[in-house]
Design a protein around this nucleic acid. Structure first.
Length: 281
DNA sequence: AAACAGGCCTAAA
DNA sequence: TTTAGGCCTGTT
């Protein structure tokens, strides 16, 4: 992988398994949006960025140092996705799903942000999820700027922990407000040590997260996959239920994916939600 | 207007 | 252990 810095951006010559549209639209994150120029704009780890693909190269705003310190890890660039796609292609359906999802990468998101975001996501639709999160960041995050655009950092658990449900009223997040505050207080107080959990087993992490009010199986699995970056998590939502019901009516043990259940789930989810399969039929 | 959206909690079998 | 009903809110 060659990385060149020029004009305030780095250009990375990596062609395989990096498709910004799929990465940002596959449902794992809520804070990246496509601009009029076709590039994606967002903010992670307190740093705003512009991400695009030009002439087969990945182009990321910032310095080579930013790339080394932030984006290389954030985009999970050390993993070989083509070999994982091969590994999860356990049958014709999974081959189709993983081919369709080629270019997806699992982002290494901030743990607290993932927890908070997926609490908000429950029984909700994506536009509203995004709106609630952006409102929260605008109200309680810190302002950043890039190319004349305004961005807001994701507020820390400590910040949210100091608020009340009333403070969250502008978010219009309904019954999720006490869940958010409860989770923030647990994290801020150190009762819920997400950093420590990330080096625990899946089972330990699952049990701990489900101890939070408002966190059930689905949200916990999303946090473990997208925030704690454990690839044996396997979130099952309504889309996954449809996919499993159609292709594995006898049931599906995530263990068949050999430690890559998380990515397998993402390919299934993205394939199912795209409706691509139905179009073929 | 009524149903639904990337669930979760509680109560009741 | 599984199931039903309620829950904030915005959109269709």
């Amino acid at each position: 992988m060659v990385c060149k810095e020029r004009d305030g951006q780095v250009r990375i010559s990596l062609n395989d398994d990096f498709d910004p549209v799929k990465i940002f639209e596959c449902g794992q994150c809520f804070r990246w949006n496509m601009g009029e120029d076709g590039a994606y704009y967002g903010i992670a780890r307190g740093v705003p960025a512009r991400i695009s693909k030009e002439d087969g190269n990945i182009v990321i705003s910032g310095t080579e140092n930013d790339f080394r310190n932030i984006w290389y890890d954030y985009f999970d660039l050390s993993r070989d996705y083509s070999s994982i796609r091969k590994a999860v292609s356990i049958d014709g359906y999974m081959k189709n799903a993983s081919d369709f999802g080629e270019g997806i990468r699992i982002l290494n998101q901030d743990r607290w942000e993932a927890l908070c975001s997926f609490i908000i996501s429950q029984c909700n639709n994506i536009p509203r999820i995004k709106k609630i999160i952006e409102t929260m960041c605008a109200l309680f995050g810190e302002k950043r700027e890039l190319e004349g655009r305004e961005f807001f950092t994701f507020p820390s658990a400590v910040t949210i922990a100091a608020l009340t449900e009333k403070d969250l009223a502008p978010l219009r997040c309904g019954y999720r407000a006490p869940y958010i505050i409860g989770a923030a207080r647990a994290v801020a107080a150190g009762e819920m040590d997400l950093d420590a959990l990330s080096s625990e087993s899946f089972g330990v992490a699952l049990k701990a997260l489900k101890g939070l009010n408002g966190v059930g199986d689905k949200v916990a699995n999303c946090v473990i996959l997208f925030g704690l970056h454990m690839d044996d998590a396997f979130p099952i939502d309504v889309w996954m239920k449809k996919a499993i019901g159609t292709h594995y009516p006898e049931g599906l043990d995530p263990a068949v994916f050999g430690g890559h259940a998380g990515l397998a789930q993402q390919y299934m989810f993205y394939y199912q939600r795209s409706g691509a399969e139905d179009i073929i039929k």
